[in-house]
Amino acid sequence: MRHWWVWVWLCLGATLFPPVHAAGPSTDKVLNPGAELWNEVRGRQAAPATTQVQGRDSQVLVNEWGEHFRDYRRQRFVRYSGYLLAGVVSLLLLYHLLHGGLEVTESGRKVLRFELTERIVHWLLAGVFLLLTVTGVVLAFGRFVVLPWSGPEVFAVIASASKEGHNLFGPLFIVALLWFFVLFVGRNLPRLVDIYWLIRAGGMLGGGHPAAGFFNGGEKIWFWILTIGGLAVSTSGVVLDFPALVEGRNPLVLALVVHGIAAVVLIAASFGHMYLGTLGVKGSLEGMKSGLVDEAWAHAHHVLWYEELNRKAQAESSAREQGQ
């Protein structure tokens, strides 16, 4: 190994001055005509193919993505999203059994947390989301979960209804999502306290409640998952709803893959959100129903917001006193 540098130079030389025959294909080799034809059929040579029949991708002889799509759908998508959803549900269940929901003793005094419009838009988004989840899940997993129980005739009816419902509610989701975003983005911009909150996992590791503003770090993460995931399902959903927007079938396959993955992530995250909003943190649901939360709840979970509210109320009352 004393002359190792010889090897280094040889390797370098080989990369800089490759052997002559690799410079280009020799032209007088007889290619296998069968292989040639097969390459053309597979569309590997980008030779133009033509056909008299008009239609999406009708000039394509062999659809190279077909097998990948099948493999993705049967071997990956259905399996791993099943694992994810089942995993999230059992984690939540485990957490609830071990830890239980959070509760604060009520003070009886209420403060306004969500305006009427905010509540309406939240439930509009939630309602449309639920309808889309149910119908979408039927399309993606119904064959494995519902069909064996219901038989093909009944399942065909369910699936057809799901498809039509899903197609129709999709655009409503986009409207609701954008509206929701405009109403809530201001309160969901990341702040330094959110990082402390997240490091202490919202107090789940003990040591009491870390301070949080109007929304805590976890809620903000959910908001951004919803926004980004929502944009992904929306754009891909629009492509699937209006196939005329794209040419060929590969963009549609891509849209379906993006749509499926983003949807499953959204659904899994929404499970967590729904748990925390109802059983996990008692009193939260009330805030989204009536708009009012208990002062003790506000103090316990969103102390910075609560203090701000108090400051504002004080400023107002002192202004009123001065005015008198």
Partner: peptide, 23 residues
């Protein structure tokens, strides 16, 4: 037909939500 259904739907949901959420 589809467009009008979407609009009618969102209208009905807004009405209904207002009914239950507005005190």
């Amino acid at each position: 037909f589809v467009l009008v259904s979407e609009l009618a739907f969102i209208g009905l949901m807004l009405l209904w939500l207002n009914r239950v959420l507005n005190p």
